[in-house]
Structures are given as structure tokens and as C-alpha cells.
Design a binder for these strands. Sequence first.
RNA 1: GGGCGGAUGGCGGAACUGGCAGACGCACAGGACUUAAAAUCCUGAGAUUCGCAAGAGUCGUGAGGGUUCAAUUCCCUCUCCGCCCACCA
Length: 816
Amino acid sequence: MADYNYKEIEKKWQKKWADDKVFAVKEDGKKEKFYCLEMLPYPSGALHMGHVRNYSIGDVLSRYQMMNGKNVLHPMGWDAFGLPAENAAIKNKIHPAKWTKQNISVMRQQLKTLGISYDWDREIASCDPEYYKWNQWFFIKMYEKGLAFRKKAVVNWCPVCQTVLANEQVSEGVCWRCKSPTEHKELEQWFVKITDYSDELLEGHKELTGHWPQQVLSMQQNWIGKSYGAEVDFKIFAGNKAGSLKVFTTRPDTLFGVTFMAVAPEHKIVSEMKNEIKNWDEVSKYAAQSAAKTNIERSQSKEKTGVELKGITAENPVNGSRIPIFIADYVLTGYGTGAIMAVPAHDQRDWEFAKKFNIPIIEVIKGENSSIEKSAYEGEGVLVNSGQFNNIKSDKAINTVIDWIDKQGFGKKTINFKFRDWLISRQRYWGTPIPMIHCSKCGIVPVPIKDLPVKLPEDVEFTGQGESPLKTCESFINVKCPKCSSPARRETDTMDTFVDSSWYFIRYCDPHNDKEAFDISKVDYWMPADQYIGGIEHACMHLIYARFWYKFLRDLGMVKSDEPFTNLLTQGMVTLGGSAMSKSRGNVVSPDEIIDKYGVDTVRLFILFAAPPQKQLEWSIEGVEGCWRFVNRVWRLQDIINVKSSVSAAQKDKDELLRAMHKTIKKVGVDIEKKLQFNTAISAIMELVNFLYAYKFHSNDGGVSKEVYKNTVILMAPFTPHLCEEIWRNFFNGKDYISRSKWSVFDENMIKEESVEIPVQVNGKVRGTITIDMDSDEDLVKDTALKNEKIQKALDGKKIIKFIYVKNKIATLVVK
RNA sequence: GGGCGGAUGGCGGAACUGGCAGACGCACAGGACUUAAAAUCCUGAGAUUCGCAAGAGUCGUGAGGGUUCAAUUCCCUCUCCGCCCACCA
């Protein structure tokens, strides 16, 4: 028989699947639903192996569930807004919309050659006004609920290009285009008050435990960063003027060791105390220098820097001692209060700072063998030099000190989060326009719902110079105030693209609705998504934003569950030579080429077989070759199964083959559904195929081997759908598509073995094996073991101290 | 610096809840088929020692220690690698 002709066969079935809309679905209350969701791609121009992996994994699960009778929703779309389109516009003089649409059509074609079971009728692109209209609608709802608000925030600014830069457009402090040093600039921007949901986002993890990778839950927990501690007020004195400085600390037990304070250069006390600060020139110079640095530069500086605020001092409330105050850029504005109480003996950063500025270091926690000579001691211990708290253990002291602070009235117990509000403003063109209007009389006014969507104007220029193209587009900016009709200006910021990806999976449930974002009853049928699949790099941002958005929709009464994704699978990277495939490394393998050479079934099989989905996958062309051989091995069984044998099969031979088949059916089901471990499912199928090759009675066994082959094809269908469809329809005369046919069932009785071979250990070493009846009792096993010649030899007349038997597994003799 | 993962033959990987480490595949070697090669089919194989062989022994899951009759799996210490976040008080 000729090789599996993938070129013809794969194309043929892809066309039939599309023509017959095999994967189109509708809500059906009589059927159990399964929503399989893969992270939608950014239309960068070409599919890469990471995409192929992501979508192959999803396809296995979707097809498996279809064959198990579920009503499967499996959609695909495009995360179509974003910076690269705008960069392309500047570089190649092509409109972002045109560039994006071209890329989508190329990648859509590539996706179709993968043979994934998508319902293409549900395709969406986030740059379509029909989609982003609802981003605007949700934004207005958030605004009405006080969840969208304006606040000053820092952006990277290139003084030469006169433009705002994204973090990725700044490397080593210079603009990516003109290489001039960038600056920081404060702008009034839009935020979403995601921190209102901090606690709930943490609580929700309880529901996800066991269904999401622990890794992702831990990362989100640390990202949200809830910590318990105390807020403490320090009095400050500057000449006749007095004030106070609030700090947050997780270690109130070290309060007696505070020997100085430090504030972030941006802290408001610096400007408030301007007249009292005696070395103002020096201080303001330092503040300006810090402002010019990026956060990364600030964090990478090896040496701690700072300037003392001369003329003001603080008082340590626990002992009344006067301590100096510094501004220092190792203190962050965003966390806590932007000011710290420094305990050099027990915080390494404070220790380094104190050494440099000759500030006293007072030990207040004494651990076993602890020392503060060479570095800070950050561990636990008992309190010393701490007045009435001496000799209390530090972990206990935290609460004791907080209670005392509270009673004395200079502080209180607090909870602090690392988590920040979501800055959604972007000073860009290619994004969803924020639907707000600035009126000189009425202030900020939302665009009336009936006027949505606020469409992006098409006729703008992309120069890369100056501000966002929207700012210079007169027809866009100039509007009448919806309230008072006087001339007003449109908001020119667009939304972060994470907004688009925060609810697209809900839109898939009702993708063409032009009356509302989605029909609640349809969404109620499909959501939450049963399985979400994507890269680990989205563990924190996207997966937190999407969870937040879902909770917000729930509060609007639009969705009925609390969490959008029941199960999560984070796939590993595809690497070559140990590192991720990337253009800059020049180690990219194009899916198109490989598919052309081996067919898509082979490529899918390799990607699913070479590593478990969660782990890194090393690309190997030899591995692909191996899968190609296996595909053909399965293909050739069509001939082999009909070969006449000279001997006829005994019942024992047939039973043995059938037992192997039932075992395989069971294992493949468990591996796909419960373990999401496709590599072992595939190797089990390989073993069954090897068995069929070793079996000698093919056409002389009353159809048993044919039955086994048929089930093999069914088990393989989720992995290599084209190959299996062809064999199913042609060789087995399947009436319907294989994806609509029934998954194999196994018979537990067929799997049971009557006897089992178990190893016998003597003092931990295997010295022989015995064959016993399944579930034999312990005494019998012991007798059998002791009668064994090899075991007797190993025992060598020694005394048996102990006999341990693990049922049907192993027997151990401990002797002396 | 912090957080989260990981380390098993020449390579990718397997191993239920602590129970025969190395399934399956790749690469390799040998054989069959062939005029020959490719393809295909079959067989072999962790390392090491003894043995002509059948076989027998020892070592072996990053390193070192511990618990256990038994550890890739549990505990402690350390090394290296990857990913994410960057001085989080």
C-alpha cells in the first residue's frame, strides 16, 4: 500500500468539514455542553509552533468531548488591536487596519490547514467596531459605578519624538527609534478600580484549587500580595512646624530598631516641607535625577542612594528618639504609603543604606547565632533593646506590639496589597477609543449609549512623531457636549488591549449580537468555559483581568457564575536548542514548511507526543520523522488486517488482544480527560498498534483484530483527525463523520487479570519473582515465595524477621 | 533581590497514593527482504564487573545527609537551569 497521501486526504476532509459545518454548534438544553477555549492569537503575520501546540491541545479535548456526546463550543478569533500594527504603519506606510486584516487572512488560512474543529461562524476580531462598541459600553457602566476614574500616572516620554513610549519601546533608557534618552512625564489617565476586587480575586482561588495549576494560583497570590501589618504615625518636626509621616510595616516587632526614615522622591512631604528643608537644592536635584530613571534602572543600581532632608526630623513613637529623614529612590511610591521606617539591623536594604550614611544600627531581634555585623538579620528570634517587649518571641511580638500601638493611639492594624489599580489609558491610535467627552462647562461626560460605538477615524497619518494621531484629528476631537451642546473635546486615549481579551470568550457565545454585548441566556448555557488553554506568561495579568471582568459582569447581573474558566491548562514553550523559538535567535521553525513536508496530522502528533503539554517542548525533526512512520504504520494496518494466516487464533490469543485493547481504551480516556497527558495516551496507542503487528491471526480470528483496529482509529481520531476520518469512512464504511461517532467503551471485566507476577525482595533487593492468583491472601503469597528456589538461596538459612506484602504488587522479606 | 517551577540512559520522555527505575519514541547496532540502496518488517541495548555463553553480581533518577523493610516519589542542606516580577518595608 502506498504511503498515507496527506496532501490529498487532509485537504479533502477539511473541505467537507467546512461545507457540512460539522463543528457549528447551537445551544441545546438536552445535551451536556463543553466549552473549550484557547487563548486567541495576536495577528502578527504568521502562525508559530506555539500556536500549533496551543490549538492542537484544544482540538484533542474538543474532539474527545464531541465523541463522548457533548455539545462542544470551540471558537476562534483575533486579538487585533495593539502596538505592532501601529509600528508597521509608521515603518511601512500601511494603515494599521489594513495590515491587521491582511495578517488575519493569512493566519486564518494557516489555522484552517491545521484542521482544528472550530466553529468558524463565531469568529470575532477585537478591532471590529461591532466588538469594541461593547468595550465602550462596559467602560461607561464602570464609570457609572465609580470603577473607572482619572488619576495622574507616569508615562515614558521621548522629548525628541514628542511621543509617549510603551515600556517595550524603551531599552536601556533610550527611545527605540531615535535613541535619545527618555524622560518621565505625569499625565492624567484613566484607571479601573480593580483593587475593589482584591479580596474576592484571592477568595476565588478556593474554587479553582485542583482545577488550575498550583503554579498559577501561587503566582496570582503573590501578585495580589496581601500582607498584614500595621500603619504607624511618626511625628515630624521642622523648626516650629510639626506634622506626621505614615508608614506601613509588616514588622512592627522591630519598631525599637528604627534609626531613620526614608521617603520616595515623589512623596508629597518633600514639596510640603520645601521651606523647612535646609538643603533644598540638593534634595530637588536628587528628586529630579530619580524621576529621569526608569523603575528598572532604579532597581538595578548596586548602591543605595539618597539625601537627608536637613531641617526636619522624626520621632520614634515607641521611645521618643529623634531620627533623620531621607529621600531615597529605593523606596517606592506605589507600595504602602511611599514612606518607610528603616530598621537597618533587620532589613538588608536599610542595612546597606545605614552603612553608607553612618546611621546607627540597633539590634532588636536576637536569633540563635544571629549577627548584624556583616549583614542584616531578617529571621526570627526574641526581642532585645525593646523596653517592655524584651524576651518576647518575634512572631508573637508582632501582634503584641500592634495592640499596644493601637492603645497608645499612634497606629493601627492594617492590610496592604501589592496589587495596583489597572491603568487602561494608552496614548495610541490602534485601540478602542475611550468613550468620554471633556466639556469646559460640564466636565467629563460619557458618550450617550445611543451614539456608540465611537469609531476610530480612518483618515489619520502615522509618523511616529508627536502625539497620538487621534490628537490631531479635528473631525474626531471636536464634538458637542451631550449635556449642554457647547463645543467640547473627545477623549483621545484608547484602551489597553487587555480590555479586549478580558471578555472575548463571552462574546463567542453570541458573537453577532448587535443589540447587546451578548444574550444572557446563551451565555448562561455556555459559560463558564470548561477548559482554557494558553501560555504560562499570562498567569498574572490577563488571567486576573479576565477574572475581574467576569466578576464585574456578575455584579451587573449579566453572568451567573463567579469564575470564567473552570479548568486551566498552561502549556510550555516550544524550543529549539534549549531556548524559545524567536526571530532574534534565528531558531524559528515555520509550521507551514513542516506541514507541507509531513502533513498536519504528523506535526500535531509529534507536538502532542514529544512532551506533556505543561512542559517545555524541544523541537526535533527526527521526532517528527518517527511520528510520520507511526502514521503510516497505522495506515498500513488496512492491508495487514486482511492478510490470511495459516493458523487460526485460539480463544486465548483473541482474549489477549482484546484485553490489550480494553486496557488501552481505558488509559487513553483517563489520560485525555483526567490527566491532560497526551504523550502517554499516544504511547499507549502505539503499544496497541505494536501488538496488532505482532499478532499473527489477522483474518482468521472472526473479526477480532479488525474490531481492535477500528477502536484504535477511534482512539486516535482526536490526535490525527484526517487520517482517522479517511480510514473510518473508507475502510470501515463509517456512515457519519468520525467526530460525530461514538467514543470506544471498555469492559472492566476484560481488563482483569487472573494471575499476576510479583517480585520478591530480600532485604530490599529483588531476588526472584513468583506468579500468584490475583488477590491471593498474604499467607499463600508467603508460602509461595518461600518455596521459590531463588528466594531460598537468597535466604541462605537466615532468620525471617518480617514479611511485608503489598497486594498484587510486591512481597518483601526482612531477614537477619 | 523576591516569587514560581525544574534536574531521570546518547536524546525527548514514562513510573498509581512510597513498592521491579528507564514504558513509548528518537538516535544507534544486528538480522530479514532487495542485484543494491531507500522504505518496510523483526531483534538488541542504563553503566559496570565476572563469564565463551546461558547467566550472576555491583552501581545508578543534579550533589550531600535523613526517615523507611522499601525513596525518582517524603524531610533537611546545597548546586545548577528555566520562567515571571523587579529594592513590596
